[in-house]
Each structure stands twice: as C-alpha cells, then as structure tokens.
Simulated scan of single mutants.
Amino acid sequence: MEKVLEKLNTWKDLFIKNIPNIAIALVVLIISYFASRAINRFVYKTIGGKIKQESVRNLVSRIASAFIFLIGLYFAMTILKFDDTLKTIVSAAGVSGIVVGLALQGTLSNTISGIVLSFRKNLNIGNWVETNGYAGEVIDINLNYFVIKEADNNMVVIPNKTILENPFKNYSLTTKMRITIECGVEYGADLEKVEALTKTTITDNFNQEKINKQVEFYFTEFGDSSINFICRFWVDSENALERLKAKSKAIIQIKKAFDKEGINIPFPMRTLEFVENNKLNIKEIAKQKISAN
C-alpha cells in the first residue's frame, strides 16, 4: 500500500510540475483544430475554380485539414515531452503495419476506393445514380462510404468498395432520356388511326423536334383480348423522378385521346355464376361481371 501511495504522489508531483506544458499543449490542439477547419474551407474555395468535380475538392480540402491537425498534434506531443514515445511508435509502425493492414483490410479498401471514386469524371456529387438496388442523388463521397439520397428522402450509406466493384447507372451524364409506353387496343379498332393518334398526342405534349428525335410506334402482338403496342419517345431529363413524371403524363394524355375518339382499351372480364342452392341465397342474380385490373 505504501508503494502505491508513493507512486501516486510521484504522479501527482509530475502532473503539477507539467501543468504549464499541459495547458500549452491543449491550446496548441485547440488552435490546430480551428486552423484545420479554416484550411478546409480555404482550400475548398481556392481550388473551386480549377477543379470542377466537387468530390475531388472535398477530398483535397479534407487531406489538407487532416495534415494541419496532425502537425498541431505533433507539436502538442513535443511540448509534453513525448518525443521518445513518438519515435517508438514510428519505429514500431513498420512491424505492426502489416498486422494492422490485415486487420483493417476492409477499411483500407474502402479508403482507396473512395479516392478512386472522387477522381472519377463520370460520377460526381449531385448526380442521380442507380446502383446496388438503390437510386437517388449523390450527397457525399468520402474516404469510407458513399451517400445516396433516395426520392423518398431516405439516406442510403454504401461502402465505397461496393460502388467501385459493381456497375452503376448515372442518369445525369445525359440530358436526354427515352420513355416506353406499353398499351393495347380492342380488335375492332382502326390500327392506323390508333398509331396516328398516339404519335400526335405524344408530339403535342413532348417537343421531339427540340431534342432532334422522333416518336416511335410499333404494334407488338395479338394479345388475348387486345392488340398490343409500344410507343417510345424522348424527354429532357436528368433523373428518374422526371422520367416517371413524363411517363405518367403520357399515359394520362393517351387515355384522354382514346376516350375522345371512342377507342377502347380492353381489360379482362370474369363471369361468376350462382346456383339455386347457393348458401348465400342469391337468386335474383344469374350472372355478374366483375372487371379486374
């Protein structure tokens, strides 16, 4: 017990003796922290006019910020006279680096993948992408993960390694997007009239000349209750949400045009027959037709 108390007294005296150094080291750490944040903003704004990719600007500014903070940490350790400890850590890093590298293989892989993704010209913050079963706007690309904001405002965090190893679709690389509408008309309809009416409806609502494209229309098959066709046209769009809106508008306008001209879009019919000894005792109904979507 006496040895423990003696050791505690020694530590207390050492702590009191080093209070000025501890205070200076804390001040250095605080200054380096705020300096790193200032450098982050400064570097980001400085290279903003030279580097167009926001992900690259973020990466460079974060590295500069981390470098400034590490310098402050080094000075703080020097003030606390941890030079020998620091040298020991650096010397042991070569031996332990292999072990740490194996233990953090996944993390290091994500970090390297994050650097690669940051410099990709076909992927940038603000793009609307679809990858690994998720679709949305790219919010952030950092050294560990990739953040997507979906149309329903949910945030999806995906490891960088997963993004790099799997294909992705970037809707923002082009401002033109093709939309396909599938539909069917009754067998008694005038097919030439159906084709002309559909093309006219699409052209009136979506300017194809502006994007130097034409409406495509093809009858595809004789269905069970209808003659089916597809109609393809182009719209100015940079994300999947605008594509859905355009497709919805096209369906509404085609339905209105068909109704106005008396062209029917068939739908399946089901007939139910009730026998006299039915438990529900429904005698007045012989047949009933129920439409199913």
Rank of each mutant, 00 (worst) to 15 (best):
M1W: 08
M1Y: 10
M1A: 10
M1T: 08
E2G: 04
L5C: 08
E6P: 02
L8N: 14
T10Y: 15
T10V: 05
W11Y: 15
K12W: 13
K12P: 00
F15V: 00
F15L: 01
I16A: 03
K17V: 02
N18S: 10
P20V: 02
N21K: 15
A25K: 14
A25P: 05
V27A: 11
V28W: 03
V28A: 07
V28H: 07
L29C: 09
I31Q: 08
Y33D: 05
F34P: 01
A35C: 12
S36F: 06
A38I: 12
I39S: 14
N40Y: 13
V43T: 03
I47H: 15
K50G: 03
I51Q: 03
K52S: 14
E54N: 09
S55F: 00
V56Y: 01
L59A: 14
R62E: 06
A64D: 04
A64H: 08
A66H: 07
F67Y: 14
I68N: 07
Y74F: 15
T78V: 12
K81P: 01
D83F: 03
D84N: 02
K87G: 06
K87C: 02
T88N: 13
V90M: 13
A92S: 11
A92E: 10
A92F: 11
V95S: 00
S96C: 10
L102D: 07
L108Q: 00
S109A: 09
T111K: 06
F119V: 11
F119Q: 05
R120L: 05
L123R: 02
W128A: 12
W128F: 11
V129C: 00
V129F: 08
E130F: 01
Y134D: 09
A135M: 07
A135E: 15
E137H: 12
D140W: 03
N144G: 11
E150H: 08
A151C: 01
N154G: 02
N154C: 02
V157K: 14
I158C: 04
P159V: 04
K161D: 09
I163G: 05
N166A: 07
P167Q: 10
N170Q: 09
L173P: 05
L173T: 13
T175G: 06
T175L: 05
R178E: 12
I179H: 04
T180S: 11
I181P: 04
I181H: 11
E182A: 11
C183T: 10
G188T: 12
G188W: 04
E195N: 03
E195Y: 08
A196Y: 13
T200R: 14
I202P: 04
T203R: 12
D204H: 12
Q208N: 03
Q208V: 01
N212A: 13
Y218C: 03
E221Y: 01
E221M: 00
F222W: 05
S226G: 06
F229R: 00
C231H: 01
R232P: 00
V235W: 09
D236H: 08
S237W: 13
E238P: 02
N239G: 11
K247R: 15
S248F: 12
I251K: 15
K255W: 02
K255C: 01
A257L: 00
F258Q: 02
D259E: 15
K260H: 14
E261M: 05
R270P: 02
T271E: 12
E273D: 07
E273G: 05
E273M: 08
N278A: 14
L280Q: 14
L280F: 15
L280S: 12
E284R: 15
I285V: 14
I285N: 07
A286S: 04
S291C: 10
N293R: 10
N293D: 07
N293A: 08
